[in-house]
Design a binder for these strands. Structure first.
Length: 431
RNA sequence: UCCCCAGUAGCUCAGUUGGCAGAGCAGAUGGCUGUUAACCAUCGGGUCCGCGGUUCGAGUCCGUGCUGGGGAGCCA
């Protein structure tokens, strides 16, 4: 007799096995009783029949509550009436714990209630499908970079300074006499890494103290950020496209069941093939103008404008060369058009908006120093960063992919909050 | 930070003109010889978000605070 997981039960037809899991449903009808067990690999129906099942198991049945933990031993048999095709005719049951009344019922719940019970909500099939897709997204991205000779270089979480704007920094006390900030991006450190390894990437959490209450914002989110030496804007635009193609391909290959469970229109994802659309900021402004939404040149897109542009295309669109004034200090200006930056954002289709942001970095030490001063950033915190331009500066470029936004788009969600196991939002730090 | 909406049983919600607090689900008990979010019957379950006000009388009207949801700006 073997202890087996539910996903492999079919291989043991006719044999006696033991399953460990949690009770998700129970039903009875006269002398027959059913237990539905979940173990993380799937669910299976166990049957208890008077005369065939032990008295011990039948006696336990009334005690069992939703989410009680137990092991069931019995014979696997194929049965058309069983969901999944197989069921277990139970011979004995061992209870690990009888659960208290479980708060999550099969009927509908509000978002606030479910978020308060996120630690239990993870047990539902829908949440498991989402987080398995997230796993596939992360795996695909890492495999993509690993296969192309990138080195994984972990960036620090505590940082002495900002790289995205000082108003959105989470501040922590660092042994009383100094302040440390939670990282908003690993990028600056990846630039140092690129000068050492050529091609690097990091994958980790980033923190932004934005007082944003929108469907796209978390205060803690995960990014994968590649950085390449001897690379320009064109290089990373191609790389970003190839990355998204690889991610979607992997999810379609390995997580099709999960996408179906979520009700995702898979044909929309099957369209995600190269080449993606590539337009300039100027062209995007024209698209907005044609849609009756005028935007003065020089301003960044708001949420509604991003949605209009994103809905305009059935595949991701890369928008390059934004006005330099809208972008961070480290972006390099286009030598042919100094008023625009050599940067790119990728907008996912179906109105999902920005999932990637990146560009070519300023590699001239004098210009970079000026930009740091102009941004009113503390010069001493960036001395090491200027060193990268003092000792063998080279053109280099990189980008960041927001994992939760990518997952939300692939799953077809309105909100990013279900794309991460324990979301951190403005006003939500529990559980 | 600003704008909009909501807060009634464990959950999702209804509650008429201001006049006795309701349903479904969940829970408990019983029934049913193969159930599929089973079904049927019975039962228990309330600080109507808090505070103040108007009124003979407030879940309902007014003020205020808190909490949750949606959106804006900003961003991945």
């Amino acid at each position: 007799m073997a202890t087996v997981t539910i996903d492999t039960v079919g291989k043991h037809d006719g044999q006696s096995v033991t399953i460990c899991g949690w009770l998700t449903h129970k039903r009875s009808s006269g002398r027959i009783r059913f237990l539905v067990l979940r173990d993380g690999t799937g669910t299976i129906q166990c049957t208890l029949i008077q005369g065939e099942t032990s008295e011990q198991a039948l006696d336990l049945y009334p005690e069992l509550t939703h989410e009680s933990s137990l092991t069931v031993t019995g014979t696997v048999r194929r049965d058309k009436r069983a969901p999944g095709g197989y069921e277990i005719l139970a011979s004995s049951i061992e209870v690990l714990q009888i659960a208290e009344t479980y708060p999550i019922s099969p009927k509908e719940h509000g978002v606030g209630f479910l978020m308060d019970h996120r630690h239990l909500w993870l047990r539902s099939s829908r949440q498991q499908a989402i987080l398995r897709i997230r796993h596939a997204v992360v795996n695909a991205a890492r495999k993509f970079f690993d296969d192309q000779g990138f080195t994984l270089l972990d960036a620090p979480i505590f940082t002495p300074s900002s790289c995205e704007g000082t108003t959105t920094l989470f501040e922590t006390d660092y042994f009383g006499d100094r302040k440390a900030f939670l990282s908003q991006s690993g990028q600056l450190y990846m630039e140092a890494g690129a000068m050492a390894f050529g091609k690097v990437y990091c994958y980790g959490p980033t923190f932004r103290a934005e007082k944003s209450k929108t469907r796209r914002h978390l205060t803690e989110f995960w990014m994968i950020e590649p950085e390449i030496a001897f690379a320009d804007l064109e290089t990373i635009m191609k790389l970003a496209e190839a990355l998204i193609v690889a991610i979607v391909e992997e999810v379609l290959e390995t997580r099709r069941q999960e996408l179906k469970l979520l009700g995702r229109d898979i044909t929309r994802l099957e369209k995600i093939q190269p080449p993606f659309y590539v337009i300039s900021y100027d062209e995007a402004v024209q698209i907005l103008k044609d849609a009756g939404e005028s935007l003065p040149w020089g301003e960044d897109f708001g949420a509604s404008q991003e949605t209009i542009v994103s809905n305009h295309f059935d595949k991701p669109v890369l928008i390059h060369r934004y006005p330099a004034q809208t972008k961070a200090f480290y972006m390099k200006n286009d030598p042919n058009r100094p008023e625009v930056a050599l940067c790119v954002d990728m907008l996912a289709p179906e109105g999902y908006g920005e999932i990637i942001g990146g560009g070519q970095r300023e590699d001239d030490p004098v210009i970079l120093k000026e930009k740091i001063e102009k941004a009113e950033l503390p010069a001493e915190s960036f001395d090491w960063y200027l060193d990268l331009r003092r000792y063998g500066s080279v053109p280099h470029a990189g980008f960041g992919l927001g994992i939760e936004r990518a997952v939300a788009w692939i799953c077809g969600f309105e909100h990013v909050r279900e794309s991460i196991p324990f979301p951190r939002l403005l006003d939500r730090l529990y559980p």
